[in-house]
Design a protein around this nucleic acid. Structure first.
Length: 687
DNA sequence: CCAGACAGCG
């Protein structure tokens, strides 16, 4: 067909045909015809470029615009620049945005409000507030749209206070905000959780009769929800005369955000039975909401419901349910979703890939985590943080530190999470001097003020290095109130280095701050027992009992093939229990020969020595490890998960087991990962 | 020429 088109048309006819084709959306023909014209005139360029933009073919529009700039001596007109500005906005193409801006200045369109507004909007979509400001400040006249575009640009750039400032200032400059302004500004109040400003805007909305606008009222519901004023959110929703899918989605999100899962689910139910059209955001809001509230099983149930309704999980769905694979510690599930991500080419997306990096790390497979990270085309603060934290969890402080330096070199700015990650990595690897340097540089070089967690990390660094007095001094000199994290770090150090005196001080503070945490009583009791202060140890346990605090039952689990097998202390409920105990007996003998001595300090019950040793053999982590070894199936490593900190005797015993059996044993306890290999643990015995 | 909801890190 194309070949049959007339060629060598006179210009006025070519323009006519290009116009017809462009308007009917047949851009293939329009382009074909255009490309044959040796010297297209301005109206022809404009027609083609604006048609391309209008039909979402922004990349082509920009290509033609650059052609136009290169080979043309014709000046662009306003309409042409407007179209290209729009194309740049939709592609967030800052480089070409600047060219359009340049041309607008060069050809004297600076004083045009319409084009100026379009340029502000373009810069806003490109997240370039400096550019937008330049245009805005240079405008001789500004209207509501100029102000709204500027405020909207600030919101896009995360400059929320500036956005609110623009909203307030425009009134002083004689421009009255319209409903678009209001719905641009409310998300800023929401993100800032600034209920006061939000109410102020709400008042403005009521006074100006904008409440009937569905954009405005949905934004109000969202604002109240973000500020955790769920009743207000519901009231606004109830008062709405007209509601669309987004209004409902916002209300669903509101309840999940306020931790009211059942209400969120029931709103979703009412939405479905009321015949309101569902979209991806509706499903994702429910699935994501369940995930955020720890309702993993429910999330997966809604996921299959979603698929049954003909919605294929999209990038956001996948990113929301990925953490389910860490909640269940299901590496296999993670790999399945990885396949899905790969097949659907969700790989370019930073958020999705970052979530995957984290899932692999949390499932215990740091190698896979590294591999996904290394394939990421670009990385932002969160993705670097994730990889740093992954290494810290696995006890690779040196690598965490290297990644941190690499992150700085690549020009990505660290935030407070970055430092928590690096510092905790340092503490696990005993990198004391390095972490002191980094701690000092936080505020000075990176304008991140150390918070309570960072201080706790430093106490941990010093405590694990055995510098307990220094750690205590550090706590005493802290500019902020020491948290349970700080005292807990000191107490942990006291356990490792058997320091009774400081252990008592730390524990007594902890008994005040978090009287219900059983771990603190257990730790102090362990310290006292190892110092042979039996009566004081039993006093501690009595204190715990008197306060009605009970030790959380320890439990360990391991996934073999598709099933998760769970063990508690002395568990005999597993199908292979007999085999497990026989194996542990046999192992015990071999371990003793290799030099293993049971450490009964970790037994809390008042029983005699022989019984104590027996109780040790029963610990859930030992049972799970034994089960794993018995079901290796040719794998060279096993992964065990435990809900509490690993017991010291088990830690020692597993080192022997890993050496004797010749496998890698990975145990994730409540704090970190331990990689046991060849008689050693990656934590270098500072668990 | 200006507006909304759903996703990642301790």
């Amino acid at each position: 067909m194309l070949s049959k088109l007339p060629t060598n048309l006179p210009p006025h006819l070519a323009l006519k045909f290009i116009k017809v084709y462009s308007n009917s959306g047949d851009l293939q023909r329009a382009r074909h015809l255009f490309d044959k014209i040796p010297q297209p005139d301005l109206p022809t360029w404009t027609i083609l470029i604006s048609a391309l933009t209008k039909h979402g073919r922004s990349l082509e529009a920009i290509q033609y615009y650059n052609d136009f700039r290169h080979k043309n001596c014709v000046e662009p007109d306003k309409l042409l620049l407007l179209s290209v500005a729009k194309a740049c906005a939709s592609l967030r193409d800052v480089m070409n945005a600047k060219r359009v801006h340049e041309d607008a200045i060069r050809f004297g369109f600076c004083s045009d409000v319409l084009l100026g507004n379009a340029l502000i909007d373009m810069y806003g979509k490109c997240r370039c507030s400096e550019g937008a400001r330049l245009v805005f400040d240079g405008m001789p006249f500004r209207d509501v749209i100029s102000w709204t575009s500027m405020a909207s640009c600030y919101v896009n750039c995360g400059l929320l206070r500036e956005a609110l400032g623009a909203f307030r200032k425009m009134g002083l400059n004689g421009e009255r905000p319209n409903s678009v302004t209001v719905s641009s500004i409310l998300p800023a109040c929401a993100d800032l959780k600034d209920l006061k400003s939000g109410r102020e805007v709400h008042g403005f909305v009521v006074r100006n009769g904008m409440i009937g606008n569905v954009f405005v009222s949905s934004a109000l519901v969202n604002m109240y929800a973000s500020c955790l004023s769920i009743r207000q959110a519901q009231l606004v929703f109830d008062s709405m005369s007209r509601r669309d899918t987004v209004s409902w989605n916002v209300l669903i999100t509101a309840y999940f955000l306020n931790k009211e899962c059942e209400k969120g689910l029931s709103v979703f139910g009412r939405m479905m039975s009321g015949g309101v059209e569902l979209n991806y955001a509706s499903w994702n809001a429910v699935i994501g909401g369940c995930m955020q509230n720890g309702r993993t099983e429910k999330a997966l149930e809604v996921l299959s419901q979603m698929q049954n309704s003909g919605f294929k999980p999209n990038q956001i769905t996948i990113t929301s349910v990925l953490p389910a694979c860490t909640n269940l510690e299901s590496l296999r599930g993670g790999k399945q979703i990885h396949g899905y991500i790969f097949r659907h080419r969700f790989f370019q997306d930073l958020t999705t890939t970052t979530a995957l990096v984290f899932v692999y790390a949390k499932c215990g497979d740091l190698e896979l985590s590294r591999r996904v990270f290394s394939m990421m085309p670009k990385r932002d603060t969160v993705s670097w943080n994730t990889m740093i934290i992954a290494n810290s969890m696995h006890g690779n402080g040196e690598e965490a530190l290297l990644l941190f330096r690499e992150m700085l070199d690549s020009g990505v700015r660290p935030n407070s999470v970055t430092f928590t990650g690096v510092l905790s990595g340092c503490s696990h690897s005993r990198l004391v001097d390095e972490s002191l340097l980094i701690f000092d540089s936080m505020s000075r070089d990176h304008s991140v003020e150390p918070d309570a967690d960072h201080h706790s990390c430093m106490v941990d660094v010093l405590s694990r290095a055995g510098r307990l007095e220094e750690a205590y001094e550090f706590i005493k000199k802290m500019p902020i109130e020491p948290t349970a994290g700080a005292w807990g770090a000191l107490l942990g150090g006291c356990r490792v280095y058997k320091n009774v005196e400081l252990g008592r001080i730390a524990a007594n503070r902890l008994f005040e701050i978090e009287p219900d945490n059983p771990g603190n009583y257990v730790l102090l009791s362990n310290i006292l027992v190892s110092a042979k202060l039996w009566s004081e140890a039993s006093e501690t346990r009595k204190l715990m009992r008197d306060r009605g605090v009970t030790k959380n039952p320890g439990c360990s689990w391991i996934q073999v093939r598709n099933r998760v097998h769970t063990f508690v202390v002395g568990d005999k409920s597993n199908d292979q229990s007999d085999e497990i105990y026989r194996f542990l007996d046999y192992m015990g003998e071999k371990m003793r020969i290799a030099g293993y001595l049971p450490n009964t300090d970790f037994v809390l019950q008042d029983v005699d020595q022989e019984e104590k040793e027996e109780v040790l053999c029963n610990h859930s982590e030992k049972l799970a490890v034994a089960f794993g070894i018995l079901n290796l199936n040719g794998e060279s490593s096993i992964r065990v998960f435990k809900n509490l900190r690993i017991c010291g005797d088990c830690h020692n015993a597993i080192k022997f087991m890993a050496k004797i059996v010749g496998v890698q044993i990975i145990v994730r306890d409540s704090l970190r990962f331990h990689h046991f290999r060849n008689g050693l643990c990656s934590c270098r015995d500072f668990w």
